[in-house]
Design a protein around this nucleic acid. Structure first.
Lengths: 342, 342
DNA sequence: TTTAGCACTCGACGCATGAGAGTGCTAACA
DNA sequence: TGTTAGCACTCTCATGCGTCGAGTGCTAAA
């Protein structure tokens, strides 16, 4: 759908102005503020057309116009295209930050906090399920008479360290044997496959060694089922109140209720799977509560595997240009750090 | 300060009514709703006295009365005294829940979630700094060529599992030797003492073994410094909107901004150190942002050591009776579970 | 095709008004 | 002496009304 150049210009100006002011924008203001080269009346005609095309809405008869989701989409496509032409600049790594980060999850939390601070939006840090990852190594460490720590490292560098309990305890030698056995059998399998393997082993007639093992396996299985938990964290939630659209208590409450639905938030964000930045606007979001929000998400990958998502969330009237710049910066930083360390 | 019985009765009735309705309560309503045996005019006289004593305030001339912090305090002392007379009932442990909980921190998170659900308030789960705890054991596990996992178990059962990196790597035998050495030297010391010991060792002329160690120690020290992190988590934050006092966007924003000041929240809650339930009302809170809130906090102890806090936060107009009952229930449950496992 | 002009629409804001809830004070009562 | 009824007064809040202004659609002229 190719629009006349002037129509697009006007559309972009409306979106830009609305992002800035959060007020319905009228033809007169537009012609004064932006140098469009035509009079307010002409703009009025174009606006009527744009409304018919579904890009604008009127809150009430004879008020100014407000951009629709499609208008934002059009605008975003436009600035995304612009950005591609400019070269990606290199980012320096602040080494003191780098040294503080031991694990992927910490890195994610930290960068989400930074992102929230520089954008003044609410941000979400999300780490993925790991059921699809392959096991690099499994180790067990006895930490008290009955408690055992399992250390599971995946090929993507994700580490999980669940603690579980063996009633009656188990001696170190046996534990070492089990470690060796499991490592031998499970290396390279996905967590899902490990679970199935464990199930089979549990139900099998057991040899001498396996008799000791049998005590550990059901506990390990139980632990594995729960270990595969994503992790979601929010930063700068109070920032949402900076937007006039959330000056209404009902909408603010809805926003926070939405954040609390963690499973739904996970599904919303984890649906994204590319290595760059992805934007979903308003009704494009497949989650009712989020249909008045825009989410800008950076997918973080290491070696082709998703290791997390970094999301900025706000009203559809989002400062796309600024937020895009910031999220690009932070995610590039994280990526560089990651490739350095793992 | 011993007050006339009738005055107290009226005061309690006012507090109770205000907790229920969030509206300034007048003499007429009071005499109709509660069976106080005196007329509205008498109540008016008593109310005037109570106002003079600082228990009531008037939002504006000739409006109803609103309880002050001292009124809530009086009321809380009253119901706390009542409670002590009734016997603590035994709580059953739901074993399926118990089996899901591997670590203290998980237990804390989980119970905070439950608490928020049953009270319909916002809850805070807080786990303490561990610098005061004594080291029970330190272990190292190699998880990749350069990454090492340290497992530190304290005498209170808290487990920390920081990952750090040794550039150039280290072989397993040396690592095992270091583990043995550190365990021998550090068992029973506090984390603070361990840090000092490490510093001394780093600066000392080293023997053969210690030459290998010297590579690990600075990294370990750095890791230890950052490991001593409390952990704070919120549940049911959207519940705050259920209270009319937060129907004002400015106050709601202030509430969420307060929650985001994690260090201050830690200080606020961690100041409490007893084994039961503690209530701090409005201006009693030593943190400006919280001066319009009441916090009811259960300190969770294991073997005399604080392992966490469970807090319900809401307006000073809190349903004290109900919330007290609920937090007692949940914290008793957690305590029982803890003593079972650790 | 663009622009100027004009009548019209609708929300925001300010102001007045009245209802209602609650008070303090006074005088009468037990 | 303590309690109650009555009354005038106060203050908030909801409602209604009129004005203002930004913005529109339509029409006719350039």
């Amino acid at each position: 759908m190719k629009m006349h150049d002037r129509k697009l210009k006007i559309l972009y100006a409306i979106v830009k102005d609305y992002i800035e002011t959060a007020d319905a924008v009228g033809s007169r203001t537009l012609s004064k503020k932006y140098n469009l080269g035509v009079s307010a009346a002409t703009i009025r005609n174009e606006m009527a057309d744009l409304e018919e095309l579904g890009y604008l809405t009127q809150p009430y008869t004879s008020s100014g116009r407000v951009p629709s989701d499609s208008a934002y989409r059009e605008y975003v496509n436009y600035i995304m295209a612009l950005k591609k032409k400019t070269s990606q600049r290199k980012h320096d790594i602040e080494s003191n930050v780098a040294s503080k980060i031991g694990e992927m999850r910490e890195l994610l939390h930290y960068s989400s906090k930074i992102l929230s601070e520089i954008t003044s939006y609410t941000t979400i840090a999300l780490s993925p399920h790991i059921e699809g990852c392959r096991v690099e190594s499994i180790q067990f460490v006895k930490i008290s008479s009955e408690m055992i720590l399992a250390i599971i490292v995946t090929d993507t560098g994700v580490i999980r360290k669940p603690v579980f309990r063996i009633i009656g305890g188990i001696d170190s030698t046996t534990l070492q044997k089990i470690t060796n056995l499991l490592n031998y059998k499970m290396k390279g399998l996905t967590l899902r496959e490990v679970e199935q393997l464990l199930l089979r082993e549990i139900n099998r007639e057991a040899s001498e060694l396996e008799k000791a093992t049998i005590k550990v396996l059901p506990e390990l299985l139980k632990t594995l089922e729960k270990i595969d938990e994503y992790d979601i964290m929010f930063n700068g939630t109070a920032n949402i109140f900076n937007f006039p659209e959330y000056n209404d208590v009902v909408r603010a409450k809805a926003f926070f209720s939405m954040l609390e639905k963690k499973q739904a938030m996970y599904n919303l964000i984890a649906a994204i799977n590319n290595d760059g930045i992805s934007i979903s606007i308003g009704k494009e979001n497949d989650f009712d509560e989020a249909k008045e929000c825009t989410l800008i998400t950076a997918t973080l990958k290491n070696d082709g595997n998703i290791v997390g998502w970094l999301t900025v969330i706000g009203p559809t009237r989002m400062e796309y240009t600024k937020v895009l710049k910031d999220i690009r910066y932070v995610s590039a930083f994280v990526n560089e750090l990651m490739n350095h360390k793992y």
